[in-house]
């Protein structure tokens, strides 16, 4: 541009004085601020965040039964475990667990991955209700998406008598804890409340 200054009154180099920097800086600031609404609009909308709760009638299950329910558009396993399964899960040495945290939304983040912390023992009970202790101990509700890359594990296969993820070979035990394979964490437990002796509400 220098040769074009031959016909200006001053000539010489453009002096980048304060006012130009201030104007350009303020314009850049505005441009950055405008970005946020356009980014945030892709986050879950208010109706998605408010998505309802899911009620499960647990009295329909007999030991060994498992159903898959949808909670917040994601599949969840609801399994009434047999006594043998509960015993196996309880007797497991914590030292054998790759992930020693309960991953339970009803408990502190630091809660250990004992079977008591994984089962419906951790679910809240609505005021004035009482729920059978054996049922709570045997009931297991977990996300049905493998913590590796999101596939749904199959029941009854794998080396730990419970779930096995066919995508990349992750093995989960009867407490939904990861035991072998590429998945990094135990299957997470959703927030849940017994609203009656027979109905468990997720969310």
């Amino acid at each position: 541009m220098t040769d074009n200054h031959s016909h200006t009154d001053e000539g010489g180099e453009t002096r980048r004085d304060f006012i130009h920097i201030a104007a350009a800086g303020m314009a850049a600031l505005g441009g950055a601020a405008v970005l946020w609404p356009f980014i945030d609009q892709m986050n879950p909308a208010a109706d998605t965040l408010a998505l309802g709760t899911t009620d499960v009638a647990v009295d329909q299950l007999s030991p060994g039964d498992e159903i898959t329910v949808m909670f917040r558009s994601m599949p969840h396993f609801v399994r009434l475990r047999t006594e043998a399964e509960v015993a196996a899960a309880r007797n497991e040495d914590m030292g054998n667990l790759p992930d020693r945290l309960a991953r339970n939304r009803n408990l502190e983040d630091s809660a250990p991955a004992t079977d008591e912390n994984r089962s419906a023992m951790s679910a809240a009970i609505a005021e004035g209700q009482s729920v059978d202790e054996t049922l709570r101990a045997a009931l297991l509700v977990t996300s049905a998406n493998c913590t590796h890359l999101g596939c749904v594990p199959t029941q009854g296969s794998g080396d730990y008598g419970a779930w096995f993820c066919p995508c990349h070979g992750s093995h989960y035990d009867t407490s939904g804890r990861i035991r072998r394979g590429p998945a990094p964490e135990n299957l997470p437990i959703p927030p849940m409340t017994f609203i009656s002796a027979t109905t468990l509400r997720l969310g």
Binding site: P37, F38, D40, Q41, N43, A45, A46, D47, T48
Partner: peptide, 13 residues
């Protein structure tokens, strides 16, 4: 209507 009411900044956009 959902854009106006529920989407983050949807009313603005």
């Amino acid at each position: 209507q959902r854009i106006d009411r529920d989407v983050n900044y949807g009313w603005l956009i």
